[in-house]
Computed example of a mutant assay.
Amino acid sequence: MILLLSSLIFSLIFSYFTNSDILNFFALFSGIAYVLFMGVKNKFCFIIGVFNALIYAYIAYLNKLFGEVYLYLFCYFPMMIYGFFSWKKNVYISKLSPFKSILIFILIIFISYIYSFHLKDLGSRFVYLESFIFASGLIATILSLKKIINHYIYISISNIVSIYIWTRLYLENSSNLAMLVLMILFFVLGVYYLFSWRKDIK
């Protein structure tokens, strides 16, 4: 309840002082709440994640970020539903070996390259950056469902790329400030929970 209230208060204050519209408010609120609940390993995060995926997909569509539309609509959305039913509270936190970590990073690059051709056809604005975000987000989500701590590493790299994209979009249109702030919070909280989850590795 405290996490939900904190997310709500921050989003309300931010939206009030930046004149954010209702769509950006809900994107910010649901995004922050999702990360906070995921960080404390509470399966309620998946319920919030469903709404965040739909809202963000629509905002990404409005900004012609088709790579992120596919990521949130056809990857995050179904995985949030799957995660809610498959998440087990008592499953131990684990980590990948250095060799597997390198293999997965190579897999991310490969998926990014293949997916970039599809985004070119769609006319996406940031083809290669969005394809990388899609690939790393897909892999990170799968790892998070298995409670593998490395997902925070991959998603943090993805968040850095997202920060760059939304900074560009913010410079074009100040109404994108809420999404830029959300990406920055995603990165900061991701790094924080990376170290927090390390204490629970078995």
Rank of each mutant, 00 (worst) to 15 (best):
A53T: 12
C45S: 12
Y61K: 04
P98F: 11
F44C: 03
I48P: 05
S86T: 15
C45W: 09
Y72L: 03
F51M: 01
A60P: 05
K88S: 14
K100E: 09
S86C: 10
N52K: 08
V50T: 12
Y70R: 00
V91A: 11
Y76F: 14
V69D: 03
F46Q: 08
F77W: 15
I59Q: 07
M80C: 15
Y76L: 09
F77N: 10
I59G: 08
I55C: 05
G67A: 14
Y76W: 12
K95M: 02
M80D: 13
A57G: 14
A60R: 05
N90M: 05
A57E: 04
A53C: 14
F46N: 06
G67N: 11
I47Q: 01
I59Y: 08
Y76G: 02
G67L: 12
K100N: 13
K89G: 13
G83Q: 09
P78G: 00
I48V: 11
M80K: 07
L71D: 01
N63I: 03
L96C: 00
S86Q: 13
V50Q: 11
M79V: 09
A57L: 10
Y56Q: 13
Y92C: 06
M79N: 11
F74Y: 13
G83E: 11
I55Q: 08
Y61W: 06
K89R: 07
L73Q: 02
G49K: 10
C75N: 09
K89Y: 11
I59S: 02
A57Y: 04
K88I: 14
N52Q: 10
Y76P: 06
Y61R: 03
Y70D: 13
V91S: 09
A60V: 09
L65D: 00
C75P: 03
K89H: 10
I81R: 00
K100M: 12
L71C: 01
S94C: 02
G67V: 15
F51K: 05
N63H: 08
N90H: 02
E68K: 03
F84W: 11
K100R: 12
Y56S: 15
Y58S: 00
V69Y: 06
L62G: 14
V91Q: 05
A53F: 10
F84A: 02
M79F: 15
S97P: 06
K64A: 04
I48Y: 01
L62K: 14
V50F: 13
P98W: 03
I47M: 01
K100L: 13
L62Y: 07
M80T: 06
S97W: 00
M79W: 14
N52F: 14
L62P: 09
K89Q: 11
F84G: 04
Y82A: 14
A53Q: 09
I93Y: 05
F77V: 10
S97N: 01
V91H: 02
Y92P: 03
A57H: 09
I47Y: 08
I55T: 08
V69F: 04
L65R: 06
M79R: 07
V69K: 02
F84P: 00
F66Y: 15
F46Y: 12
Y70S: 11
A57I: 07
L96Y: 02
N52L: 13
G49W: 13
F51Y: 07
I55E: 05
L96V: 06
L73V: 05
I48L: 15
M79P: 06
I59H: 04
L65T: 01
I93W: 04
E68A: 02
